[in-house]
């Protein structure tokens, strides 16, 4: 193990941290925005809503993230019609292809987490809320969401960390994030042990920060909770 190499190349790999963090933040925001309606559709009584949502989740949970990324990056670019459309402004970029794949993937998992959390709110509370004349929107914002959010949080934290590590796949579509830069440096130095170790430590630091953030959020959300 050559620690000199680790010190020397840390700044170069840190440039990739910016790209990785951008991927993570944008994916988490977009993924959550997509997951909420998906979860609601999945729980809906109407088959027209629940079956498409289930099909979506079924597809994205059942296929590897790498395959999804390749379909979006290499697959879509085969179609002349896509290359001529406004979509190509985004799809021609490795960065946006990665964002799209990660978002669609994480939304499927997050929707399942949210669905379970919504289901776990006791039926009695919902009936009570309806019986005092709450509208469905009020029922969701005042009774279901605050409790479901807390239940979903640990699972969502897990999914976010998994997704953060999944961003390393973006290196296969010519994006220079942490893993991509690390692999380029290995090509120059032939030192896989040191450099992959360094990359691993950086990923671990990011995930530690994320887990810490979720812990704080959980504490803040549960501050009104009365222990029974």
């Amino acid at each position: 193990m050559n620690l000199q190499i680790v010190m020397e190349y840390t700044p170069e790999i840190l440039a990739g941290v910016v790209v990785t963090m951008k991927l993570v933040v944008v994916t988490m925001v977009l993924g959550l925005l997509l997951a909420v309606p998906l979860a609601l559709c999945r729980n809906a009584k109407s088959k027209w809503l629940s079956i498409p949502a289930y099909a979506y989740i079924y597809f994205f949970r059942g296929t590897p993230l790498l395959v999804q990324l390749f379909i979006i990056y290499y697959g879509f670019s085969q179609f002349e019609s896509i290359r001529q459309s406004f979509l190509w402004t985004f799809l021609s970029e490795s960065y946006w292809c990665s964002i799209l794949a990660f978002t669609l993937n994480t939304a499927a998992y997050t929707a399942e987490i949210l669905r379970g959390a919504i289901k776990s709110v006791p039926q009695g509370q919902i009936e009570a809320a309806l019986s005092v004349g709450m509208s469905p929107i009020k029922l969701y914002t005042r009774i279901i969401s605050p409790q479901a959010a807390l239940i979903a949080l640990p699972g969502y934290c897990n999914e976010s960390v998994l997704m953060m590590k999944g961003t390393s796949l973006a290196s296969t579509v010519a994006l220079l994030e942490i893993t991509g830069i690390t692999r380029n440096l290995i090509a120059e130095t032939f030192m896989p042990l040191e450099l992959f170790f360094l990359a691993g430590v950086i990923y671990m630091i990011i995930s530690t920060i994320m887990i810490g953030g979720f812990k704080l959020l959980e504490a803040s959300l549960s501050r009104f909770r009365v222990e029974i």
């Binding site: 290499y74 670019s77 021609s92 490795s94």
Partner: peptide, 8 residues
């Protein structure tokens, strides 16, 4: 080659 054809 794929990305040359796609224009990326």
């Amino acid at each position: 080659i794929l990305d040359l054809f796609s224009g990326r």
